[in-house]
Design a protein around this nucleic acid. Structure first.
Lengths: 192, 192
DNA sequence: CCTACCGATCGGTAGG
DNA sequence: CCTACCGATCGGTAGG
């Protein structure tokens, strides 16, 4: 089976994620990666189709994680505030548990080529729409007051997405403490 | 005078800013830039020392603009809320009036080499400290309630910094309307 | 501002 | 998994 994840393939993917995060996708060469893995550059191609296939794996892997989280939220019983709060928790959880991948996902998705690029953008729009709907549900239920829904959603998501930048596993705040802080900050800004 | 900004030099800088924003610094070649300007690649070097000098100009130009804005805020009379609100307005103004440069500033500063890189990071820290102080002033004055000052500052700044991504000059909201929205959203989250 | 060119490096392949 | 190598491209310089 060509899709079998061998140890070597896992190692290559992890090193690629770390390198892309540290230097950026465009500035990382396959020779850099080979050197980090401990093989010659040509040997990488026995495990990986191309440099872009690595980027694809990282970007769509994160997208899948976000969508998986969103499905949990959608199936959750509770009022709009509770669901938005849960969505923030889940989002923070995905980011803090995949920091390097989250950084690459944020910065380097634009180096995907078509048609993957369009698919990626479409998924992004869907995820933003999911957050928008959570907000709108709160407005419809009379729980939230939102001046501009789209701007509010983008503010929340940009704040959450940049958590990979300064979150530290050995820092003072745990992911769930961070999530609570962010939820409190934004939701109190949405209350009447 | 070697620092005289000729028309050609201005043109090169503007095209470089647009290209770096569209493709990323690392993925933009001096030949791409030359082609956009309408000259041969070698000719660029009569106006510009190096590719990195262009990046330096963009990143430190933005840093200067942010610091210039912060000085206006510091000299402003008013209570902590008024000053924080003004700081948000000024920050949004800088970003929305230099969208491409703001994107490059955000994404590509890490490609600066030492010692510029350290200087840049230091200026960034200072700017974050300025925002932190505005928040702390509000806490000291009994106006704000802040659970975690650093996390709150980073949330505000990441929201504001990503405005370049979706702000449209021909969109429904003007920069000052956007600034008001962001200030209302965050400051209502800081009130008792 | 151009032609001509430098050494270095790129992603990737052939063949074993 | 390696050696050997491909054509393309990189930032930048020499010299006019």
């Amino acid at each position: 089976m060509s899709d079998l994840l061998t140890d070597r393939k896992i190692q290559i993917t992890e090193k690629a994620t770390a390198l892309f995060r540290a230097r950026g996708y465009a500035a990382t060469s396959m020779r850099d990666l080979a050197s980090a893995v401990g093989v010659e550059a040509a040997s990488l191609y026995n495990h990986v189709r191309s440099k872009e296939a690595l980027l694809h794996h990282i970007c769509f892997g994160m997208a899948d994680a976000f969508f998986s989280a969103s499905r949990d939220v959608m199936h959750h019983q509770g009022d709009a505030e509770e669901r938005l709060r849960l969505a923030i928790y889940k989002h923070v959880e995905v980011i803090t548990s995949h920091r390097d991948a989250a950084a690459v996902f944020q910065h380097d998705w634009r180096y995907l080529s078509e048609p993957d690029l369009s698919v990626f953008k479409h998924q992004r729009d869907n995820y933003e729409h999911y957050f928008t709907q959570l907000l709108q549900d709160g407005v419809d239920a009379g729980l939230f007051r939102v001046a501009d829904t789209k701007l509010t959603v983008m503010s929340m998501l940009s704040s959450l997405n940049w958590l990979y930048e300064w979150y530290r596993p050995d820092g003072a705040l745990s992911p769930s403490q961070i999530a609570k802080h962010q939820a409190d900050l934004f939701i109190s800004g949405l209350k009447f």
